[in-house]
């Protein structure tokens, strides 16, 4: 399980926690997040930004 950070706004995605409020179950790997997903903080699409391993 890894933790990723949006390079645009600093939003943290923790694979162990997922984002249940956005319908993404705990344990969902970054690679398995749908391409249409957007950063909940800055709205940048998954394809439009890079998550960096923290």
């Amino acid at each position: 399980m890894k933790v990723w950070q949006c390079v645009v706004c600093g939003f943290i995605y923790d694979e162990t926690k997922g984002m249940p409020e956005e319908g993404i179950k705990a344990g969902t790997k970054w690679a398995d997040i749908p391409e249409g997903w957007a950063c909940p903080d800055c709205g940048v699409a998954k394809a439009d930004f890079e998550m960096i391993e923290v």
Partner: peptide, 10 residues
């Protein structure tokens, strides 16, 4: 805003 910058950069 952030999104126009990302599109312009690409």
């Amino acid at each position: 805003f952030v999104l126009p910058i990302m599109h312009a950069a690409r």
